[in-house]
Design a protein around this nucleic acid. Structure first.
Lengths: 186, 186
DNA sequence: GTCTATAATTCGATAGAC
DNA sequence: GTCTATCGAATTATAGAC
């Protein structure tokens, strides 16, 4: 029990952390095994040994849980703002699983598939639980606004959307998500 | 006058067209000079000869004019829908300059710079011309919704947002853009 | 103007010593 | 469990023949 670990879970975790950071910053293609190893302070061949391949490494660090709040338990008029605040808070904490996917999706089909899977399994059911009609369309519209915000914030870095916790952004994007959730067509 | 061209502008245009299509479909890194040449039906070295480098080729095909309508001439309540319809119509016509930038921006700083430049020179002034206050914030919020829509439509291909001209999408995203333009904070 | 041939890198992946 | 050494493939880019 008190003996040292035989398998180095710590090394594995160091590699994963470095990979997450680099995938989120440079996308899939421009992140190299060598760079990940360099940032983790170990040899490139260790990355292969622990994760099998670059694809395996990406798969290991790109699946995550959005940990959405229980929307059905919230007052109806607070849902939009709560959703936006949830994402901004996660991003602020440096939890960048979604950014990894967002950056990689442009050139990587596996990243797109994983993003669709996360949408289908974690977002759509929550929306369907509270929307009265057209839940699928509403969920996709919400995804478009949230992902667009992430894109402008982390990729484009537009100044007014990139602050640590812009209250005006929560307010306005929250209202918009609220409309996508419950608003009538006209 | 009636003599044949010495320089082949047609070849140049064929290369550019192929490059636009491939950059829009695969992003910057996964688009190779070889593939562009193959699609254009010429030799890879010709691409270098005409555009100097891969970066030069990208620069040549990634600058474009959004051709935004004159928002100030529209009835105030029609601006949001008009903007969304404008983008959907352009996309439908296969005019994919924005998609080229969107896909390349994830891993290419030049693409990001160009996108910010297009935003600053073509979008922001128009918005500033009709918004009463906080034009910069409002313009960025609109960009986030439009770019998010493009991302979900062309990259993720979410089914309800990918149709040729979903009237429901124009309607709903139009309302949202309208809110970003004129809506009060609370 | 167009193509052939190839230089110069860079990267993912493997084999094997310690 | 970690590292050295290297292979093989793919890519951008160049030099030069026709």
């Amino acid at each position: 029990m008190a003996a040292a670990r035989i398998r180095s879970d710590e090394t594995r975790e160091r590699i994963a952390r470095a990979a997450r950071r680099l995938f989120a910053e440079h996308g899939y293609e421009r992140t190299t095994i060598r760079a990940v190893a360099g940032e983790a302070g170990i040899d490139p061949s260790m990355v292969m040994r622990y994760f099998g391949s670059k694809e395996g490494l990406f798969a290991a660090v790109s699946s995550f849980d959005l940990r959405l709040p229980d929307l059905a338990a919230l007052p109806r008029e607070a849902v939009g703002r709560a959703l936006v605040r949830h994402f901004l808070t996660r991003w602020e904490q440096g939890d960048d699983g979604l950014v990894v996917l967002l950056r990689a999706a442009s050139s990587n089909e596996e990243a797109r598939a994983r993003m669709r899977e996360i949408f289908a399994s974690q977002v759509l059911p929550r929306i369907a639980g509270i929307a009265e009609d057209e839940a699928a369309l509403r969920a996709e519209l919400i995804a478009s606004q949230i992902l667009g915000l992430a894109f402008c914030r982390f990729v484009l870095r537009l100044p007014h959307l990139s602050g640590p916790d812009a209250e005006a952004v929560v307010e306005r994007v929250g209202s918009v998500v609220q409309f996508h959730l419950f608003g009538a067509a006209r």
